[in-house]
């Protein structure tokens, strides 16, 4: 289990060692994964894995409640958390599609997993599109990771990236449109809000 000291040290190394960022993601990912598993097992009632709550929980655990970390620390953490959350979900999505294809030998009833399989396919598609976005604009890709995967508010993103709120809002608006266009028509019902 990582200690706050660990995190502080890793944070201090970012900028000097190219491996430090990778290491931070790893640490956060381990912790997130453990938290997620715990949360799912504990909840018998209505529950979805709530990325915002999870990320905040990990954040509090890593940094403690007392000191307010500098915004550089926060922005590194958010970045690490968004990458970690993304990785965990990609793992899940890959597993879900594997089960659907019968790659996994254990017999799984198809019906209850149908929705999951459909979501998993879209998720992996989104993963690819996001990789392309990274080539076009690293900033936009980062906003998607933070906003969408971690539920971090646009205000917080603006603060941690050091840009204005209106710029973040605009970048997010453009990026959403970009993503929807790239994802193509068949993903429409999952992407667009239900019109009533």
């Amino acid at each position: 289990m990582p200690e706050s000291d660990d995190i502080t040290r890793i944070l201090a190394e970012i900028g000097e060692s190219p491996h430090a960022a990778e290491r931070l993601i790893e640490v956060v990912r381990d912790d997130l994964r453990r938290r997620a598993a715990l949360q799912l097992r504990a909840s018998s009632g209505p529950s979805t894995l709530d990325p915002t709550a999870l990320v905040h929980e990990v954040y509090v655990r890593l940094f403690g409640r007392v000191e307010t970390p500098t915004w550089e620390d926060r922005s590194h953490f958010f970045f690490a958390a968004s990458r970690a959350m993304h990785d965990i979900l990609v793992e899940r999505a890959r597993r879900a599609t594997r089960i659907k294809r019968g790659g996994d030998r254990s017999r799984v009833p198809l019906e209850p997993h149908h929705a999951t399989a459909k979501e998993a396919r879209l998720f992996l598609e989104l993963h690819e599109v996001l990789t392309r976005l990274e080539q076009v604009s690293a900033r936009r890709a980062a906003i998607v990771r933070l906003r969408f995967y971690c539920g971090i508010s646009l205000e917080e993103i603006a603060e941690s990236m050091g840009i204005s709120r209106s710029t973040v809002w605009r970048e997010w608006a453009v990026t959403k449109v970009w993503l929807i266009e790239k994802l193509g028509a068949d993903s429409g019902d999952l992407v667009l809000r239900t019109r009533i």
């Binding site: 990325p51 539920g151 992407v191």
Partner: peptide
């Protein structure tokens, strides 16, 4: 947020 797009995955 991600929960609305991938509820059953999450």
């Amino acid at each position: 947020g991600i929960g609305s797009m991938f509820p059953s995955l999450l």
